[in-house]
Design a protein around this nucleic acid. Structure first.
Length: 844
RNA sequence: GCUGGUGUGGCGGAAUGGCAGACGCAGCAGACUCAAAAUCUGCCGAGGGCAACCUUGUGUGGGUUCAAGUCCCACCACCAGCACCA
């Protein structure tokens, strides 16, 4: 009998052996085929590793381990994205330097990751807060600055009232701060901006050449929001000036009955003398400015606006004079900040026209209902009317025709617009990369000399942000006051720091050559390792990190720093690990449910009572894990009680990798039992390197299934296949050494410790991590005899077994014989699907 | 509202158009045990039948097909992202 499976001993033993042997050290031999597997590096929070972290890490650890066994030189690195607000806030609260907080947190994370047995090459660890790392983050910023892609701009930014920091649009969720949930207001500040918009088109186009899961591609495209239309100049009646608008429906130009400009549009101030109701407009503008983004979108469903008195516009195609309004449904930040309103064919314009009694003219016919009653926006079926030379054309043809006309007359051009805005790159915080720019009174903003990098963070007394919106660095006069690199005169350093997304925008490059002092990575390393072959990360990073890092990479490509235009060849996304909601009715024990029903009279009433007490959330049985609900699972405890191999197996078995899944401790136990059964197979081990006759097909099938599933994110069915195999082995009561060896190898990427231990116990040569991946023969995955389903008219009527190679007539004949009396009526069709079924279609 | 995704036993979930429910959990019964736990064996969608079996069943309603969880059309519910982007 085997000794009992002791996961503590086994896991500690093998983790030490791997460390001592440097088992997963990346080879510098660039002649070998390479494979670069990447997971998003974590933010080392004070809470330690969450049970959600191991899911993607284990998935790609499986791929990495398998690739090594297949002979690849594998780069599977790990690091820490350690700059950021939570650390800084913790430091402020507890009066500890953020560097120390970071160091402690990183140490804890490393320990936890180590205990899970990942095959990371820790010699390549990166940390965004290391001077030797952020030196290159600053270096890239200087390149951006010199290329004119980093600029300073006075602009209204999203200001988090609690974090006291400016946020990028992407960091504002439903009008509140993504991190702390506090209200976000508009505040005008001078900010560093990055011109990501310059890359908008390429960021969409190049998605065609990469293998990203569809939903990631779609969200990137939506976020960038490309639209094709035209800009048209309307004359302001009696003036030289033109009012330029953007529209995606130039075909409806003859239907424009009024115009709308955004409240911030410069037109208003320019003609304030002639505007009869300037005061009224200003009042409206002020009101609009006070609204947060949240109010503007969520609460202001009802259209508001004011007509500009004293100014009108002229439609350039028919000379019609139309009024101009201001309204906050037109945004200054998109297009030209002005629109022509075609109420018949645009929903918002229609609502506005109805509210203010403005005329609605149909120019696209085809709606079953009058446009006075209902807006008609269908572009596929309509035909142009009331539009002179466009009459009778389809919408698509009319667009083409009108744009040609506008361009010929010089009153308009075709134009592409994007929703994407430039990236707000400054943060009024301490714990980030200093921006290596100096502000000189004479020379303006001057970049630091590259050779002087890194510009390190100075020691400050207080990390507290100031209420006037300045970074804590501003108080460091010694550090701030410097000399201009250009003229040598007195100058001030930039006191804002970079956002957290800076360091994570290029970290995958540093892993290739992490100790390089001359460059962010050597050209040889970049040429060999790029692009990342497989990058997995969370959906929440699709419009932030993923887009930002693709932008930086494209820029570095244009600069000749990196050899390829796209950083990631393949991108997948894992689902979240959720927890049970302890307040939900369905998660109560049966007794408790019964008690609640009795107490409140019915299940409905009981549920309502729970909602009353705990809020809407009580209706959702499966929710995000949170401290306040007390349903957070600590991975350390799982590793302690069941072992890392069990945790790894469970997280892979929990469900489809890309879907969210609810944690279940019973499920963990099931996976532990599975490993115990694998352990106990050593008791029925028999001599023999070959597969036994009755398991040979199963072995080949399992190798095929597991190998394929590991490549296709189907870890759950790979494990199910191995479970099924050991069930068969146990039924048979014997396993040959050859069979066991294969099973252990297949399971090794998922459960590396226990499989190495068993390998050694069985006296197999070497270590599993040094062996090669098992092969299968396609011919041997086919059963000699197959079970055939019998159907009459598509209804199941039993099964029978035949040898694989029997021909159609014989199979059908046999089926008919077995069906006997059940087969009545005239046979109209006989179908045989080889190896699967016989279907006999009869007419009564 | 738009975009994408998901609806299958008590639960997590499997099924190149071809035997729905693999695998796991929970449950039930049995073996072992003084007993419990652990372990092992068997059963396990619903309805009917002593039984062999029969009927029914993958969110709803239609359709295509010899055959539909899977394909097509229309809807419903839930989840995620976007949301006055002209």
């Amino acid at each position: 009998m085997a000794v009992p499976y002791n996961h503590h001993e086994v896991e500690q033993k093998w983790q030490k052996i791997w460390d001592d042997e440097q088992a997963f050290k990346v080879s510098e031999d660039y002649s070998k085929p390479k494979y670069y597997a990447l997971v998003e590096f974590p933010y080392p929070s004070g809470a330690g590793l969450h049970v959600g972290h191991p899911r993607p890490y284990t998935a790609l650890d499986i791929v990495a381990r398998k690739r090594r066994m297949q002979g690849y030189n594998v780069l599977y690195p790990m690091g820490f994205d350690a700059f950021g607000l939570p650390t800084e806030n913790y430091a402020i609260k507890n009066h500890i330097h953020p560097r120390i907080v970071t160091r402690n947190n990183v140490a804890r994370f490393k320990e936890q990751l180590h205990a899970l047995g990942y095959s990371f090459d820790w010699d390549r660890e990166v940390n965004t807060t290391d001077e030797e790392y952020y030196k290159w983050t600053q270096w890239i910023f200087l390149k951006l600055f010199k290329a004119g892609l980093a600029y300073k701009s006075e602009m209204p930014i999203n200001w988090c009232t609690s974090c006291k920091v400016g946020l990028a649009n992407e960091e504002v969720v439903n009008g509140v701060c993504e991190r702390c949930g506090s209200a976000v207001v508009r505040k005008v500040k001078s900010q560093w901006m990055l011109k990501i918009t310059e890359y908008a088109d390429r960021l969409i186009q190049d998605l065609d050449g990469v293998d990203y899961v569809e939903r990631v591609k779609v969200s990137q495209k939506n976020w960038i929001g490309k639209s094709q239309g035209a800009e048209v100049d309307f004359t302001i009646s009696g003036k030289e000036d033109k009012l330029r608008i953007y529209t995606t429906r130039p075909d409806t130009l003859f239907g424009a009955t009024y115009m709308v400009v955004s409240p911030e549009h410069p037109l208003i101030d320019k003609y304030k003398e002639e505007i009869g109701n300037y005061e009224q407009l200003c009042a409206y503008r002020e009101q609009a400015a006070k609204k947060s983004d949240f109010e503007r979108t969520e609460l202001a469903k009802d259209k508001t606006g004011v007509q500009i008195r004293g100014l009108t516009a002229t439609n350039p195609v028919n000379g019609k004079e139309i009024p101009i309004w201001i309204s906050d449904y037109v945004l200054m930040t998109y297009g030209t900040g002005a629109i022509m309103a075609v109420p018949a064919h645009d929903e918002r314009d229609w609502e506005f026209a109805k509210k203010f009694g403005l005329p609605i003219i149909e120019v696209v016919a085809g709606s079953p209902v009058s446009v006075q009653e209902q807006v008609f926006t269908d572009v596929a079926t309509g035909t142009l009317v009331n539009s002179e030379f466009l009459n009778g054309l389809s919408v698509a043809d009319a667009k083409e025709r009108i744009i040609a006309f506008l361009e010929e007359k010089g009153i308009g051009t075709s134009k592409t617009n994007f929703k994407l805005r430039d990236w707000v790159f400054s943060r009024q915080r301490y714990w980030g990369e200093p921006i290596p720019i100096v502000n000189c009174e004479k020379c303006g903003y001057v970049p630091m000399d590259e050779n002087e990098l890194p510009l390190t963070l100075p020691e400050v007394e207080s990390y507290e942000p100031t209420d006037n919106g300045e970074s804590p660095l501003a108080a460091m006069t010694e550090w701030v006051n410097t000399t201009c690199p250009c003229c040598g005169g007195p100058a001030r350093r930039e006191t804002d720091t970079m956002p957290q997304w800076a360091g994570s925008s290029w970290y995958f490059l540093r892993y290739m050559d992490p100790h390089n002092k001359e460059a962010l990575a050597s050209q040889e390393a970049l040429k060999y390792w790029m692009p990342v072959d497989w990058y997995n990360g969370g959906m929440e990073h699709t419009t932030l990190h993923l887009l930002y890092s693709r932008f930086w990479h494209k820029f570095l490509y244009d600069q000749g720093v990196v050899p390829c235009p796209e950083p990631y060849q393949k991108r997948t996304s894992h689902g979240m690990i959720l927890g049970l909601n302890p307040h939900s009715f369905v998660n109560q024990t049966q007794e408790e449910q019964k008690r609640l029903v009795e107490q409140y009279g019915s299940e409905k009433a009981a549920r309502a009572a729970l909602v009353e007490e705990f809020g809407e959330m009580a209706e959702h049985p499966i929710v995000k894990m949170s401290k306040s609900l007390g349903n957070v699972v600590n991975p350390d405890e799982i590793v302690e009680e069941y072992g890392a191999d069990t945790l790894r197996t469970y997280e892979m078995f929990i469900g489809a990798f890309d879907m969210s899944a609810a944690w279940s401790e019973d499920g963990v136990k099931g996976c532990r039992r599975f490993l115990e059964r694998v352990w106990k197979l050593q008791d029925i081990l028999v001599e023999g390197e070959d597969y036994s006759a009755d398991l040979e097909t199963r072995m080949h099938q399992t190798i095929k299934k597991v190998s394929g599933d590991y490549e296709n994110l189907k870890y759950n069915t790979a494990i199910a296949a191995m479970m099924a195999l050991i069930n068969d082995m146990n039924k048979k009561g014997a396993v040959t050494k050859g069979e066991y060896r294969t099973l252990l190898t297949l399971l090794n990427p998922v459960a590396p410790h226990i499989t190495e231990e068993l390998w050694q116990i069985c006296g197999f040569a070497g270590k599993i991590y040094q062996t090669s991946w098992p092969e299968y023969e396609e011919a041997k995955t086919v059963e000699a005899t197959v079970e055939i389903a019998m159907q009459i008219g598509g209804k199941m009527r039993g099964t029978f077994s035949i040898p694989q190679d029997l021909d159609k007539e014989q199979v059908i004949a046999q089926a008919k014989e077995l069906l006997g009396d059940k087969l009545t009526g005239t046979i109209v069709k006989e179908i045989y699907v080889p190896g699967r079924l016989v279907n006999i279609v009869v007419k009564p």
